[in-house]
Design a protein around this nucleic acid. Structure first.
Lengths: 208, 208
DNA sequence: GCCTGTGAAGCTATTCACAGCT
DNA sequence: AGCTGTGAATAGCTTCACAGGC
């Protein structure tokens, strides 16, 4: 099983290879890719080991083949289907952000409780009432959910998503969520992240 | 020096103590707080060690004193000043989200290049032109920055912020940023996070 | 000579497990 | 008996350093 951190970096490497390397560059050395990604060359090589792809000591890694090899690890046969729950400011921002970048991930449904939003197409995606979560998630075989609802309803929404078959959750609500072992959960609370950054920013200025 | 992860969890513990414990609960045991935070009791106790606060084996931890003790570690003498650069959808969402929760962090300035936004007050915060970054950051002694600009200008904006004295950066642009050793950087790219969640979601369904 | 792949070492984070307290 | 604080053990992640290839 590939680790958490490695998967994140593989995703970054692929993105760099696909968008930040000009067309006529056919291959790169580990230290070049590592520099772009701001990681050590050893780290990069270690990560690439998990994909099974090998570079050559004279030419390094073929840009195209490496990207393909990473895709082989990260992507499934078809794009993962994603639902986003809570079309407030943050929810809408994320949906339109994801729209902008072509991606292996398809946001196929959004949900809200506000009847002024439900039934409409917002940021290019159909918005359903939250009472239809089970129905749509099951029907569309959605496996990933992004939670951007207020924190007091986040757990309830989570339970329903998990029951409907979601196995990965990206949580922007500032509350810890209880999920079964088999469900992967990533928390992205803005406040906590900012408090952490502020703490280390202060420590950094105090030191000098 | 307290670790990354511990700081994040301390921030969470405090938030739980301040908002999720009812008024008449005067003290709690480690396993109770741990359950709220979804961490192990041992983890919680380990984290609390860094604050220097000790509980009692009969009553556990005093809610009020513990919150104060965490504050002593996390907070400086005055609230940290924060700037946000890039008032697109995501930027506005984050600013208004932070406004909503009272916090030790004050967003004192936002920046954008769009002249329809600059000079106005958006989501309760003054928006300046990006040409004034150095001026305002220096004058207001801003130490923390949130970056929500398009990825092609993120590095340039970062360099200017760092030069102006910022020592902590929360980066939502989907590009790795190069910063000097002394500056703390946290990346929060949405796409990378989603790809990671999708990967583990798929692994989880494949397994069964 | 400069590269890759990787065993081994080093470092960090988490959990175990228990002494000591009430 | 049931809790806290913590040394020791374990698990997980990153870097070192070097054999082997071109």
């Amino acid at each position: 099983m590939i680790s958490d951190k490695t998967v994140e970096r593989l995703s970054l490497y692929r993105w760099l290879l696909e968008t930040k390397v000009d067309k006529d560059t056919v291959s790169l050395f580990s230290h070049q890719i590592a520099a772009m990604a701001c990681v050590s060359p050893a780290q990069l090589r270690r990560d690439l080991m998990t994909t099974g792809y090998s570079g050559s000591s004279t030419r390094g890694y073929s840009v195209k083949e490496l990207a393909g090899s990473i895709a082989g690890v990260l992507d499934g046969n078809e794009p993962a289907k994603v639902a986003l729950i809570g079309m407030g400011n943050l929810g809408r921002a994320i949906v339109s952000f994801l729209r902008g970048r072509r991606s292996r991930l398809k946001v196929v449904a959004t949900f809200d409780t506000d009847s002024r939003k439900t039934g409409r197409v917002i940021s290019g995606c159909r918005c359903y009432g939250q009472n239809r979560i089970e129905e749509i998630v099951t029907r569309e075989q959605i496996s990933v959910a992004v939670i951007t609802v207020p924190s007091d309803v986040a757990q309830k929404v989570t339970d329903r998503l998990v029951n409907a078959g979601v196995t990965g959750i990206l949580n922007y609500a500032p509350v810890p969520l209880r999920v079964p072992e088999r469900v992967y959960l990533e928390n992205r609370d803005v406040t906590t992240a900012l408090e952490k950054v502020a703490y280390f920013a202060r420590k950094s200025t105090e030191k000098e």
